[in-house]
């Protein structure tokens, strides 16, 4: 006479709740999944399934403009990641470690790029580059990407350091190490997973960004998302789907890597 009754608070076992959640997940995944699925569809009209093909991936790979845009995106993301990870880590460490005058307003200011509408930052950058007479191109995009990535990296580093035991540094100093030696031998190893996670985040942000890139790019500095945007403006084609799928796979792989690194580093060191 074994019974398996749900407990009163097992809301996730109630049928209506499951329907509700099921509907929401269909809503969340149907567009993306269908986009990916129809990048393999052997039909230009793109709406009914005509059979599997990799034709559109071939087309996308042989599209020299897409090639160039992708290369641009990688160059920008590479430089932006390097610079913003270093600067963001410094900022995160400073915020974690020090008390200083006007800290509240300062923190508000450096986190501003996270909270303000992207369009506001985008047009401000345009105004700035025009004022200082800097021609729009790869440089202006990269500079802007670094600016909005720094606070994100800083937040990741600071969160990582929140679990750090300051007495380890004190122990190192007590045992005769200099500040610099203490940093390299004690603080830096602890911080490393945060650096990797922060760098991956900065890379994804840069690779994905559309709005700010769109405004700060000039002729000849088309990035991957911008190229896709210009293709999307014309029509929905399987080739766009194929290019989009490639970008989705890259960002997802990077993010999953960041997640794994973060969760692995949070486990044992905290205990």
């Amino acid at each position: 006479m074994a019974k398996d009754r749900a407990n009163p608070l097992d809301y996730s076992r109630k049928t209506w709740m499951r329907l509700c959640m099921g509907f929401t997940f269909v809503f969340l995944y149907f567009p993306i999944v269908s986009l990916i699925a129809f990048s393999f569809n052997d039909s230009k009209r793109n709406i009914t399934w005509q059979g599997f093909t990799l034709r559109y991936y071939e087309q996308a790979f042989n599209n020299s403009q897409l090639h160039e845009a992708f290369l641009n995106s990688l160059i920008i993301a590479g430089i932006s990641t390097t610079v913003s990870t270093i600067l963001g880590a410094m900022l995160g460490l400073a915020l974690y470690r020090f008390r200083f005058p006007a800290q509240g307003p300062y923190e508000g200011l450096v986190h501003l790029p996270i909270v303000i509408p992207e369009i506001c930052m985008a047009v401000a950058m345009v105004a700035f580059f025009a004022t200082v007479n800097m021609p729009l191109g790869l440089t202006t995009i990269t500079v802007s990407h670094i600016a909005f990535s720094i606070p994100f990296v800083a937040v990741v580093i600071r969160a990582r350091m929140a679990g750090f035991d300051r007495s380890l540094e004190e122990a190192s100093r007590d045992l005769g190490a200099s500040q610099w030696q203490t940093f390299w031998n004690v603080t830096y190893p602890y911080m490393k997973p945060g650096l990797v996670a922060g760098a991956l985040l900065a890379f994804t942000l840069s690779l994905d960004d559309f709005v700010i890139t769109f405004f700060t790019s000039g002729p000849g500095s088309t990035t991957f998302p911008i190229k896709i945007y210009s293709m999307v403006r014309f029509s929905v084609t399987p080739e766009v789907n194929a290019a989009s799928t490639v970008l989705i796979v890259i960002t997802l792989a990077l993010t999953v890597a960041a997640l794994i690194i973060q969760s692995r580093s949070q486990g044992p060191t905290h205990a």
Partner: peptide, 12 residues
């Protein structure tokens, strides 16, 4: 996944 792509997916 990219904001642009997610939005584009809705067009289809």
């Amino acid at each position: 996944t990219n904001l642009l792509i997610r939005t584009y997916a809705w067009i289809a």
